[in-house]
Design a protein around this nucleic acid. Structure first.
Lengths: 211, 211
DNA sequence: GAAGAATGTGACCTACGGTCATATTTTGAC
DNA sequence: GTCAAAATATGACCGTAGGTCACATTCTTC
């Protein structure tokens, strides 16, 4: 049985490893970083890493989950300002864009994980967190649409909310990803922001007019 | 110097390899398929594969490019029916969705390639084709918006076309990817189609109303 | 201070993308 | 038909990276 201090120190080590891995992943991307690199940066041997995490994927998944949880805590307050649904929608999108522009590699790594989600071998605890955060993500966009309906601002049928709840994520992800990998570095941030804003404003117009 | 028959036979072998690889990739995904698997399926040794392609990535890239070229040739006729811009837009989206629903793994592999596009080591010829097809993809969506403007159907400013040309790809990709990896298998196709259609109809309303 | 639990190490295992010396087949000039 | 050069094919081999394990060290507890 672990004592309290021991437990705390173990948790500390775990965080040290995550911090080291995070810096490496977000600088170089997932594949180029080796477990030995992470071990070296965390001042441990390779074997020790596997005392704290079951695989490289597991390390990356936990980093992403921490970030997503942080994102959701940032998003929570957007309903509290009494803003119009359109403003809430745009506010949400901007938090999302800011989030990825701060750590640009995060986006690529997250997408990569989503693409391979069903072939990853993660611990039960991590899988539980993934399901939880996925549901929170879905409910955020659903709530925004619902908020707009309740305010009488979006002329949307309730049954449509479900059909299009992914459209918002899709739109944002798509615009970010395409600008991120096609455009020139120098104009990237500006283009992503203007693309998202323009596209969203058109979408909102549609929501207000929707049959 | 290669004779004509020799050249034809070489091309034949190349295609045999591509066909074998295609079947494997689209059944199992990119990573699980090894070059030896491809060689075995094509009834060749591993070394022989490298007489025709410089890397595993190169093989996959050429398969994807062939598919994308095929997609563009399918898209070309959508402007010729004299349809309204809205109909063209919806027609385009449906071709896109059909394309991925036919070979579902294609989508995952393509996204994967896009995410790693800047760290792939491909031949000059392949890179040239990638640039060409990327430009064609961009111009397709731009042309649809422009068509709508010319017809007086979309109340869009010309300078906005550029800012939002990726939004359409983004919306479609996002909806497909999220439904593909989150939803239940049994309802997937239906959900993707209804999500795309609902979302697009709202977007089109916005385009018609756009300030 | 001794037994046992927890932590740490790095040589080692396996799998895979890619290379290369070598072998076989085809081609074309004579 | 002969033969050298070119093209094609093979599979043992290499380097690398994720993951394991026997062994060493440190800490806890009685």
């Amino acid at each position: 049985m672990l004592g309290k201090r021991r437990k705390r120190e173990r948790e500390q080590r775990r965080k040290t490893i995550l911090r080291a891995a995070r810096r490496l992943f977000f600088k170089q991307g997932y594949n180029p970083v080796t477990v030995s690199d992470i071990a070296k940066k965390a001042e441990l041997s390779k074997g020790a890493i596997y005392l704290y995490f079951s695989s490289k994927e597991e390390i990356c998944a936990q980093i992403l989950l921490d970030d997503i949880e942080r994102f959701h805590s940032e998003v929570l307050p957007i309903f509290e300002g009494g803003d119009s649904a359109s403003e809430v929608l745009i506010g949400f999108a901007n938090i999302y864009v800011d989030f990825f522009l701060k750590d640009r590699e995060l986006f690529r790594i997250l997408m990569n994980f989503m693409l391979h989600a069903n072939s990853l071998n993660l611990s039960d605890d991590t899988n539980r967190r993934i399901i939880l955060e996925t549901n929170r993500a879905i409910s955020v966009t659903e709530n925004i649409f619902q908020y707009g309906i309740d305010k009488g601002e979006f002329l949307l049928k309730k049954e449509d909310v479900r059909a299009m709840r992914n459209s918002l994520w899709g739109m944002l992800n798509g615009i970010i990803s395409l600008h991120l990998f096609i455009g020139r570095e120098s104009t990237r941030e500006k283009r992503i922001r203007s693309g998202v804003n323009k596209c969203l404003s058109i979408f909102i117009e549609g929501l207000k007019k929707s049959e």
